[in-house]
Design a protein around this nucleic acid. Structure first.
Lengths: 130, 130
DNA sequence: CCTTGCCTTGACGCTGACGACAAGGTTTAG
DNA sequence: CTAAACCTTGTCGTCAGCGTCAAGGCAAGG
């Protein structure tokens, strides 16, 4: 399988696959003419990467999952390193949820205040800006 | 008040103030020697900007609040344009909260699964990477 | 005069995950 | 012979909000 086919099957771009390779996440063989050649297993790897990135992981966070898959496991999350990352990410998400919730509360308060003390003086729309 | 003093009083840097000015958020006068001169009101403006950025607003979102303050209002959020932004931001935050909550749920599920099917095969630590 | 400490503009760096080109090699089909 | 459709490496651009020099002007004190 060449890079174009893998890209299409994984629902991504060739640029992306080369980027992953540059960061050590994917390791294709090379054919005689220098083309990248991937085997079927890489498709699952790339899909794992994409799924994790979509969830908000960084490339570094993804590495243990790829290694786990490549070690022959059915899914990438059953290895100790992956579990560590999962725990850490869960904690990060929890933190972020807390902060976002606080922000939401502040926004609601501010909205209430703003509507109560509505428009004392209003700025006029400017027509152009140099 | 010169830029250094304002920066210190607002708890930020001169670079930041020049950046805000470049984006039309702050408008100092100039003294004879070309130095930026700010009056007391700008301190409140800068603090408003900082507060909103901290909450996750972008510079563009902040503009209406600055205009509102500059129009003579006690707080920057009482003008119609500010209220529009507040509503939009609140909606954005709600959206984000939903997605983050979904992600959190997925992480928990994945963790549970991972711990159940623990370590069938484990990748060995690599010692170096070229 | 010289140093210190302000100030000025200008321009590059950073983070992350790529998109978008450029300039060229390879293979296949017509 | 040539066009089409792959592939290669390399480099710059993107978004945001600044940090961090660089090179120099201005004001005041010893």
């Amino acid at each position: 399988m060449l890079i174009g086919e893998l890209a299409e099957r994984a629902g991504t771009s060739t640029r992306t696959l080369r980027y992953y390779e540059a960061h050590g996440l994917v390791r294709p063989r090379r054919s005689a003419n220098g083309y990248r050649v991937y085997d079927e297993a890489e498709l699952r790897v790339v899909r794992e990467i994409r799924a994790l990135l979509d969830v908000g992981f960084g490339l570094d966070d993804v590495r243990p999952f790829v290694a786990c898959l490549r070690a022959g496991n059915a899914s990438g999350d059953v290895c100790p390193d992956s579990v560590l990352v999962l725990r850490r990410k869960l904690a990060e998400v929890d933190d972020y949820l807390d902060r976002l919730t606080a922000v939401r509360q502040q926004l609601r308060t501010q909205l209430t205040h703003a509507i109560a003390h509505r428009e004392e003086t209003c700025p006029r729309k400017r027509q152009s800006a140099p």
